[in-house]
Structures are given as C-alpha cells and as structure tokens.
C-alpha cells in the first residue's frame, strides 16, 4: 500500500472511532463524582420509564411509516414500471424534492397547512408526525424499490401470473412482492434509521419521541447522555447492518444515505 493511502485511511478511521471511544469513556464516568469507571449511567437509562416510553413511540412510528410507505409506493412503482414507464422520470424527480425541501422547511409548511385540523390528527404523533415521516422516507423508499423493480422482469412475471388466472391483487402480493422483498426491506431499514433519529420535525411540532428524550437528558444529566448516545448509535448500526445483509442479494443497491441532521 502507498504511504499516502495509509495516511488518508488512518485519518478517516480516527475521525470515525475517536468520538465513539471518547463517548464510551465519558459514559463510564460517575454522574456524582465525574470519575471513572461505573456502569451506573447505563443502569440509569435502562431503569428510566421515559426512555422505554419514548423508544416505544419512535419504534411504533417507524413501523407505521414503513407500512404506509410500502402500501403507497409499491403499487405505484409497480404500475409505473408495468404500464407507464414514461412516468418514471417524474417519480424520480418527485423523489428529489424532499432533498430541496429540508425537514425544517417541511415542518414550517405542515404546521401552517394543518393548523386547526382535528385533534386526532394534529395532536397525535400517529397522525401528523407519521404523515411527515412518510415524506421523509419517500426518497429512500423510492430509490430502493425502483432498483428492486428494475432487477426483475415485471412484464413476464405479470403476464405469467395473469395467464394462470390470477387477479391484480394476487399478482401483486403473491408474485411481485416476494420478488422485491430485499428492496422493500432495504427501504424499510433506512426508514427505521430515519424515524428513530428524527429530531427537527418532532421538536418543532412538540412531540415527545426518542431523540427528544436524548436531547432532554443531554441538557439535564451529562454523563448518562453518553450512554444514551451510544445506544442510539447502536440502533443506527443495527439498521445499517441489516440493510447491508439484505443488500447482498441482487437488485438492492439502495441509496444508503438517510439520516436526521
């Protein structure tokens, strides 16, 4: 290996690991004395009711986002691939819009537009917040699913299924869906990573999700926040690890950059 290659890779590696290592060391310090080493911060987190409560809310929100996204995007992308390929650039263009409209701009618009809408929607994370998260997940879901659909022969599969007498719903659920399972999973894991880390929209619309809890601990507790930060990093690892695992199969070169900045 060239010396310059070693230098740059070392630099990148250090930048990746040092903040994690220091956060780990930080999380081992006692919240009372500031001295090393104790696991008390981790036990504080695990015995905190609010931790489990907000974690559950964020996780259920992620599941809801995934279910709605798949229900909306799979039939649409299937149909566009099958019948109106001309619409594909239109969808790809639409999928770029959430990049130009960042979450902070989106939430300003959503708050204005849905102001005064019924409470079951506006005041519930399952309504307002999930609605916004489906849009956040849209580009990642779209690019994953589109790659999945491109890797299969939609026409042949559909014709074969129909010539055997299957209805559209049967074709979609029993023939198409199993074939794009890896792509759908990849998009789902990205959506999971986004929702579990999303702070901007939740904060501005005053919902208490997991990242809001982390920030609350950051401001009030110091050392236990280190433990929480590492746990949150673990969630990102788990989501990305699963993504790579399903990505080994063909047709899942998904967009891997999600994130809640």
């Amino acid at each position: 290996m060239a010396p310059s290659a070693v230098f740059w890779l070392l630099l990148g590696g250090l930048y990746f690991f040092i903040p994690l290592l220091t956060t780990f060391l930080f999380s081992l310090k006692s919240n009372q004395t500031g001295k090393c080493c104790t696991a008390a911060n981790y036990s504080w987190v695990i015995h905190n009711g609010e931790f489990w409560h907000t974690l559950k809310i964020s996780f259920l929100l992620a599941l809801e986002t995934i279910v709605i996204s798949l229900a909306i995007f799979v039939p649409t992308i299937y149909w566009v691939h099958l019948k109106v390929p001309k619409l594909r650039p239109v969808l790809a263009f639409l999928a770029l819009i959430p990049f130009v409209v960042p979450p902070i701009v989106m939430v300003v618009g959503l708050l204005k537009f849905y102001q005064g809408s019924p409470n079951w929607f506006y005041a519930q994370p399952w309504g307002f917040l999930a609605g916004a998260y489906v849009i956040l997940a849209f580009p990642y879901m779209y690019f994953s699913l589109d790659a999945g659909f491109r890797s299969i022969d939609v026409h042949t599969l559909t014709e074969a299924s129909q010539s055997l007498g299957a209805r559209w719903t049967t074709t979609l659920f029993k023939v198409i869906l199993p074939n794009i399972r890896a792509a759908a999973l990849a998009g789902s894991f990205l959506a999971l990573a986004i929702v579990m880390g999303e702070y901007t929209i939740a904060n501005l619309s005053a919902f208490h999700t997991f990242p809001i809890f982390i920030q609350y601990v950051n401001e009030t507790q110091g050392f236990p926040a280190g433990a929480l930060t590492l746990m949150s990093f673990g969630i990102t690892w788990a989501a990305m690890g699963s993504l790579l695992l399903v990505g080994r199969k063909r047709g899942t070169r998904a967009a891997v950059v999600a994130g809640a900045r």
């Binding site: 903040p19 880390g197 930060t229 990305m240």
Partner: peptide, 15 residues
C-alpha cells in the same frame, strides 16, 4: 453518514 443529529452533537460534547 446516518449517525447525525442529537446523538452526534453529544458525541462531540463528550469529546
């Protein structure tokens, strides 16, 4: 690239 936001901020505060 997916590790951002509040946890990232805290990782730098801890460092």
């Amino acid at each position: 690239a997916n590790f951002g936001g509040i946890p990232l901020a805290f990782a730098f505060i801890a460092s």
